[in-house]
């Protein structure tokens, strides 16, 4: 069997077990939560419904069945691709997730790229001369940002740039009151910029500290010592040996950072009222929209898994020990 096929097979098996685990855990948590599905469905019309009608709805939904039977029925629908209908939006869950994900994609992709590249660059600069003024500045920045909640950073930036300086809009993905067809790309970018900056600068810390540490390790390695013995300067060392050797662990870290990015986006989108997937998550949780919430849980699990898999793939392409080692056994 070719190497890539066994790799894909292993990954697929892992994805399936992951999704089964997510299904069991999220179903259990939701059934233990105080949300009553009938109440959540009826909402404000509660007073107009008689107890008999409630019981009818419950029976029609199968709420009188034992929990295991309900779980199996639900899981069967999921496996068939039916995630149900969102109670808030009254539309299929998958449609909402698709729409919201497109809106979040720009935000998350920008933040992901900027935080990755900036963090890597800062980590290299700091690690090349540990103890220097620049290194200490980068570390101070990283420690402060790593310990600041992203919603708080979002609020500070909002106060500074939207309220104080009035450079950026205060909310939303486009100017309020405009019809969707009147919104230009410039509008969108203008509204994207502050949430993206927030997510980026919060995400930098991890990558910068990690890259710095790895570069210091590389510069203390036997091959760095030998390069110095050949007359290499620190710049030469970083350029020829540092960048490549540090890139490998950085790729893995960057793939793993998708989960944090997703979590960060939930909070940041809420602060900026940015109508993305994160904002939908908060809405779904606050307004007891169980189908949407479960749909988002599943989607985020797949999303994070995909990110890690891409990082694995990239790693295999970059590292000759895996790339060539696997091809010539």
């Amino acid at each position: 069997m070719p190497e890539w096929m066994s790799f894909a097979g292993r990954k697929l098996l892992r994805l399936i077990t992951l999704l089964v685990a997510v299904a069991i855990f999220s179903y259990t948590l939701i059934s233990l939560s105080p949300i009553d599905p009938v109440d959540a469905y009826i909402g404000a019309d509660m007073l107009l419904i008689s107890p008999e009608q409630r019981a009818q709805i419950a029976a029609r939904w199968g709420l009188d069945q034992p929990p295991l039977a309900r779980f199996i029925a639900w899981a069967r629908e999921l496996a068939g691709g039916n995630f149900g209908t969102s109670l808030i939006f009254n539309r299929p869950v998958l449609e909402i997730i698709g729409e919201r994900f497109i809106a979040s994609l720009g935000l998350m992709a920008t933040a992901w790229l900027v935080s990755g590249l900036l963090g890597y660059a800062l980590g290299i600069l700091a690690g090349a001369r540990p103890g220097s003024l620049l290194d200490r500045a980068v570390r101070l920045y990283a420690y402060i940002l790593a310990s600041s909640p992203s919603f708080w950073v979002a609020l500070l930036l909002l106060m500074a740039f939207s309220v104080g300086l009035r450079w950026t809009p205060i909310c939303c993905a486009s100017p309020p009151g405009l019809l969707p067809e009147e919104v230009t790309l410039a509008h969108r970018l203008h509204h994207l910029i502050l949430p993206a900056i927030t997510l980026s600068i919060v995400g930098v810390a991890n990558m910068a500290l990690h890259t710095r540490q790895k570069l210091i390790e590389v510069l203390e390695s036997d091959y760095a010592l030998f390069a110095r013995a050949q007359g290499a300067t620190t710049r030469d060392l970083v350029r020829h040996h540092g960048l490549r050797n540090v890139a490998l662990p950085a790729i893995t870290l960057q793939g793993a950072s998708l989960s944090e990015l997703f979590g960060g986006a939930v909070l940041v989108e809420q602060v900026f009222t940015y109508p993305g997937l994160g904002e939908a998550t908060v809405q779904a949780a606050l307004r007891s929209d169980v189908p949407l919430l479960l749909g988002i849980v599943f989607f985020s699990a797949i999303f994070v898994f995909a990110g890690n898999t891409l990082a694995d793939l990239a790693y295999r392409l970059v590292d000759p020990r895996i790339r060539i080692g696997a091809a010539t056994p």
């Binding site: 036997d222 091959y223 010592l225 030998f226 390069a227 110095r228 013995a229 050949q230 007359g231 290499a232 020829h240 040996h241 490549r244 050797n245 490998l248 590292d319 000759p320 020990r321």
Partner: peptide, 21 residues
């Protein structure tokens, strides 16, 4: 002078960068 007039022949292949031909 190192590398130019004085050169080291190191002990093992660990002195080479593992990711570079």
């Amino acid at each position: 002078l190192r590398g130019r007039a004085i050169a080291l022949i190191p002990q093992t292949v660990a002195a080479l960068d593992p990711l570079m031909p």
